[in-house]
Design a protein around this nucleic acid. Structure first.
Length: 526
RNA sequence: GGGCGCGUAGCUCAGCUGGAUAGAGCACCUCCCUUCUAAGGAGGCGGUCAAAGGUUCGAAUCCUUUCGCGCUCACCA
């Protein structure tokens, strides 16, 4: 065998396993192959388009920790699909209509004295969220009063005056009453402005937006034609349903007795609209929490029954809930972690630690601000992305800003190390000498670099940034081990030094690339 | 009750298309900065892979059952 295959230099047998020794020049050949590829890790362009939906908030309250997992996940999956050569459309459905937003509107009308983001200095989404909470408080007070007056609890919950007023407002909105629509438009614009600030801090953007207030109308039309085709049926009270008994599920309501639409109605409309807007689409990814698994199962089934073959190309990217050490997040109990607050906190922590031990003397104030944001947000994003999406996860605020071990800042730190070497080198590194002898720590890095394309492919297939995170972590661990065990600039053998410099450059490029897939920036100093 | 998912070290997580002594980080204990960033590295401690059966030369991984946890089954979103 040693004669047949030139790169095998030895072998031994342990417990029934054949171990082969591979020569240095084989690994250097492989490394040379990688170096020759311009965008190593990025697959060739395909003509396929994927639509990735994420975020999709309600417009009645600010974004929170749960949204952060959703948004980072969706954004990262979009990047990963791009790296697999596909065209990607990042989108969301904005749930801008319905009773929830009317509640905020009503409470604002009743109790705000015309408070605006400008007059209060509050971020728009925070201001609207504040009135949503006020509505809930008043609503509860009224229920309590009704019960004390001898009303049944259930009846009280249905007949609290403020709730009736909100429902009335919703009706007026659907009828297009000018004043209500105007108020709705104003308060939504506040929210969007607030969200824009949050997305900007996150470093996240979208290619297209869909509004429920638009798509629910299309949804209604589709339901009507489904009725004509006999795919759907109408009950005596006028409500419209889809028979799902053949899939062993309960029938699903698509239009209420009074003709108004439900969530499912607009989801049908949105899906159809998107496939019309992007005809080359071969996959639509819905990044939505696992509590909606049933909803999407039903949605895809209904789409198929309505005759849309693209139903098979829809995929619910279902992710687990984010829990706190204190338990579940509950808005009613005030345990929700606000997205803006958390990001600010994490950036502040990065600042404190960096000022304490960073190598940042040469940076100006603007560069420092940027660095703190990179480290803080990098840590947060990595923390939320390194866990398998489908698993629910524990969010420990104390650990998210940790810097040691399997964390974003650890990886960023390693990248910064590579940069100080790259900067010290100055000028071109000469070609690889394939006859150089390589250390084990160097071979380990080459082997891992060789796995990159397969990892990208797998991450794309399984929609899992966690694979990218773990790959990157393993790579920088190998690099740190190498970094500590050999010296680069003290190496007298020029060929060996070249190998190490080229490895350093390639690891740096790879880390910057894989981190970018997670939406994480890497600093050259920290 | 039905459906779906999860259960790996004290804690947080990898590994799961079956292969060698089950890995990492945190925490705890040793070492290593006159060396390119010690936000680092080398090592130690720590596991009946929830439990029991089964398939297999071989199971954390596949199958069955049980237990525990989560989500879900609205004229809510």
């Amino acid at each position: 065998m040693k004669k047949e295959i030139s790169f095998v230099t030895g072998f031994n047998v342990v417990k029934g396993f054949l171990n082969l020794e591979i020569s240095s020049d084989h690994w250097l050949n492989k490394f040379q192959d990688i170096l020759n590829i311009e965008n190593y890790g990025v697959a060739e362009k395909t003509d396929k388009t994927y639509i990735v939906e994420f975020s999709s908030p309600n417009t009645n309250k600010p974004l929170h920790l749960g949204h952060l997992r959703n948004i980072f996940l969706g954004y990262s999956v979009a990047n990963i699909l791009k790296a697999n050569g596909h065209d990607v459309v990042k989108t969301q459905i904005i749930n801008d209509r319905g009773i929830h937003i009317c509640k905020s509107m009503l409470a604002w009308q009743l109790f705000s004295n015309n408070e605006t983001p400008e007059s209060s200095g509050l971020k728009g989404d925070k201001l609207v969220g504040k009135y949503y909470v006020i509505f809930d408080q008043k609503y509860k007070e009224e229920i309590k009063q009704l019960i004390e007056a001898g009303e049944e609890k259930e009846k009280a919950e249905k007949e609290a005056p403020i709730l009736l007023k909100a429902q009335e407002m919703l009706k007026k909105w659907e009828e297009g009453e000018e004043e209500v629509v105007k108020l709705w438009g104003m308060m939504n614009s506040w929210v969007y402005k607030g969200f824009d600030v949050t997305y900007d801090t996150m470093g996240v953007d979208f290619d297209s937006l869909y509004y429920e207030s638009d798509t629910y109308i299309l949804g209604k039309d589709i339901v009507e034609s489904g009725l004509e085709k006999g795919v759907l049926y109408k009950k005596e009270d006028g409500s419209v349903w889809c028979d799902l008994s053949s899939e062993k599920m309960d029938d699903k309501l698509l239009l209420r007795g009074d003709g108004t639409s439900v969530y499912m109605t607009q989801d049908v409309g949105t899906a159809v609209k998107r496939f019309e807007d992007y005809p080359k689409t071969v996959g639509m990814i819905y990044t939505v929490g696992n509590e909606q698994e049933h909803h999407f199962k039903v949605l895809f089934t209904i789409l198929k029954k309505l005759g849309y073959s693209f139903a098979d190309e829809c995929f619910h990217l279902s992710y687990g809930m984010v829990n706190l050490p204190t338990g579940k997040m509950k808005s009613r109990e005030g345990t929700v972690v606000d997205a803006d607050d958390l990001m600010a906190e994490v950036i502040q922590d990065a600042k404190n630690i960096t000022e304490e031990r960073g190598q940042i003397e040469s940076l100006n104030p603007d560069q420092l601000e940027e660095l703190f944001a990179q480290i803080g947000l990098g840590g947060l994003k990595y923390y939320l992305l390194k866990v398998d999406p489908k698993k629910s996860m524990m969010f420990n605020p104390a650990e998210s800003i940790d810097l040691n071990g399997n964390t974003g800042p650890f990886i960023q730190y390693t990248f910064a190390r590579t940069q100080s070497i790259v900067n010290k080198q100055r000028g071109e590194v000469s070609q690889l000498n394939l006859n150089t002898e390589v250390e084990k720590s160097e071979v380990d890095i080459i082997k891992h670099l060789l796995d990159l394309p397969e990892m990208i492919q797998e991450a794309g297939k399984s929609y899992s940034p966690a694979l990218v995170a773990n790959y990157t972590y393993d790579l920088v661990k190998l690099y740190n081990s190498f970094y500590q065990s050999v010296s680069i600039f003290k190496e007298e053998d020029q060929s060996k030094q070249n190998v190490r410099l080229l490895l350093t450059e390639k690891v740096a490029k790879t880390v910057r690339f894989t981190m970018s897939l997670m939406g994480i920036e890497v600093p050259s100093k920290m």
